[in-house]
Design a protein around this nucleic acid. Sequence first.
RNA 1: GUCAGAGUAGCUCAGUUGGUUAGAGCAUCGGACUCAUAAGCCGAGGGUCGGGAGUUCAAGUCUCCCCUCUGACACCA
Length: 530
Amino acid sequence: MNHTENHKFSLTTPLYYVNGVPHIGSAYTTMVADAIARFHRLQGKSVLLVTGTDEHGQKIQRTAAEENVEPQVHCDRIVESFKSLWDKLDIKYDRFIRTTDPQHKQIVNEFFARVWEQDDIYLDRQQGWYCVSCEEFKEERDLIEDHYCAIHTNKQAEWRDEENYFFRLSKYQQQLEKLYESQPDFIQPASRRNEVLNFVQQGLKDFSISRIDLDWGFPIPIDDQHTIYVWFDALLGYITALLDPDQAPTLDNALAKWWPIDLHLIGKDILRFHAVYWPAMLASAGLPLPSKVFGHGFLTKDGLKMGKTLGNTIDPIELVDRYGADAVRYYFLKEIELGNDGDFNETRFINVLNNDLADVLGNSLNRTLGMLKKYCQSTVPQLSSADFSSDHPLKSIGMTLGDRVVQAYENLQVSQACTAVLTLVRAVNKYIDDSAPWKLFKQEQHSEVEQILYAVLESIRLSAYLLSPVIPSTSSKIYQQLGFDWDFNQEQENSQGAFSTHSNWGELPMSKALGQASPVFLKLELPSKD
RNA sequence: GUCAGAGUAGCUCAGUUGGUUAGAGCAUCGGACUCAUAAGCCGAGGGUCGGGAGUUCAAGUCUCCCCUCUGACACCA
């Protein structure tokens, strides 16, 4: 592993459309992004996690009109609900970009100018059926009866006949194909990559980047009769977000430090915008391309698609209020393989958390601290890795765990990282039962007891450390009960270099005396069905 | 219709280049223990690995056909 390069890591969530309060899908993406960001910070890198909101477009304009408020007022309200949810979920974002931020307009204009200079934008006439909910022109075949949209079956598409500005996407066909070939990791997972390849191979058409009859958005710089298409505007938010708060809003400033982005984390529904349109736009403007676009799967509830019509949506705010951030994070990160569709089932949710976090992880710490108090006056034996043979049941797992977990996080396999850690914690419980320190204590085999308790506590510490990107609060409680003055929700001033000791088994000196033990994760209960 | 991907215990999933009685976690049932959040440990039941045919000494793993699901693309209305 190369530690000399890669000091920085930048990643984005989508800029969420503020048509309504955040739904569970947005929360899911953001939790994943946060865990990835936390993992990189843990390693001592400087990290920029970008999230934000996409606020322009006809859909917003109309929603606001229905509410009888100015679009900006509507957006301000919704934005608050996003920020408050991220807060509740312990999301540590570095930038929250709103496409209505004043500096964004400057970036969009400058970017537009670059693309214009390349002769990649032209005016043409567009006729067709337009779905406002999709903000897209639809082919006749994409519509169902009476020109209702196949995606928004309650919305009728509108006939439009207008002049629009187009982006010369077709010009970038070959360049994109080369990109996908030379950078096979650019689109992940592989199944999604195939879809994109398939799509691109059939030939790219130019796409329109402006609308008329729309006020809510930025005007096209050279023609204020037109408004910039919401997607063109939104994607550029990733660049605007990179500006430091006090910097002048120029492309050069924005791109200076964090560009290109290492990872765009998105849902599979917006893959085409990120994997096709976006790199083409950037190429046109002469900018380097992001390293990776990862399109994750969708969530179902009890095996069914979620939707307003079925009335089976999950409210992330309600969920986190009821069960807490760590519980929600853990379920979605551990129980769902990133990239696959995943299911939410409340009984499974309760079972997983109570088992993994309360019974296995939490209880292993609790029972051991109990013994430490009774058998060792709460004083941790000062041992280290060298005092254990390499085939010791816990050391043998712990020695390689750090590397395996790092590998998993780097491959965005958070679920596998959790599973690997849980293997150690399960081994801890078995080891305690197998070695029965309570018997040894009665036989006055004190040094054996100390050995056992040290090995157990060190294993739990390591587990907590490696799980901290996923369950920061629980990990913090464990660290604190182990005597470390440490909070995984705060930037650690000494985090530089900490990773190499903390991520290894038996290399970190333990604090000597421990305080009061108390359960780090309380069991959850299903709400009563009244 | 075309092209991908998937179909393995009640649930969520692992199963390397084909090789001994198909694994894990949860759930269910039983047992012994007591340090602990009535947790943990040990054990049991539970699978014709979607169906069928074939290749092979040997197939969950390879080939062909079929069924189901998901996605992308396309066509017809």
